[in-house]
């Protein structure tokens, strides 16, 4: 069993998450909070919000990673213990969102990952959770996917426009 699989098994019933806002519009952030409240109650899965990345098993990354926040995002992720599991939330976190090419954003997690690698910070597993904003259910689904409890539905498909 690999280290990652072991770690995933260990946190299975108590996942501590740290919410990292990298310049998001707030919609995803309040949906993250919403997931904690009675209707969705992620504590059913042992998910608990913690106040420091040093305590966190998973980072919930929202926002397009603005230039101002970039150094702080890198620092927060660096502070996280291995394995570093990240949930990139919302269309901003996944692909940079509506401002993916603006002068003051980095443009999505892919670019951040490159910057992190250049700085010697390795990420062990990422789950991309699209949505604008992400529904609380989508966040739950993303966490379950991270743990391997549900099957991934999205798959790359490329089809030819057919005649008919």
């Amino acid at each position: 069993m690999s280290n990652l699989a072991k770690a995933l098994k260990a946190i299975r019933k108590s996942i501590w998450v740290y919410h990292l806002n990298s310049g998001s519009c707030n919609a995803c952030d309040i949906e993250v909070l919403d997931a904690l409240t009675p209707y969705f109650d992620v504590e059913r899965f042992g998910v608990k919000l913690v106040g420091s990345p040093r305590h966190a098993d998973v980072i919930l990354l929202t926002g397009p990673i603005t230039r101002e926040s970039l150094p702080k995002v890198v620092r927060a992720i660096r502070a996280m213990p291995r394995p570093r599991l990240i949930l990139a939330l919302g269309s901003c976190g996944v692909g940079g969102g509506i401002w993916w090419d603006s002068y003051s954003t980095t443009g999505g997690f892919k670019k951040l990952e490159d910057i992190l690698r250049e700085n010697g910070v390795e990420i062990d597993r990422v789950v991309y959770v699209p949505g604008c904003p992400v529904r609380p259910e989508a966040i739950i689904y993303g966490i379950l996917l991270l743990l391997g409890a549900v099957e991934q539905k999205s798959k790359r498909v490329e089809v030819y426009a057919s005649e008919s």
Binding site: R135, A138, V157, E158
Partner: peptide, 14 residues
């Protein structure tokens, strides 16, 4: 809405 994926390529379709 259950679109989560572990790879960014899986989020594209054409």
């Amino acid at each position: 809405f259950e679109l989560s994926s572990t790879s960014i390529e899986d989020l594209k379709s054409g």
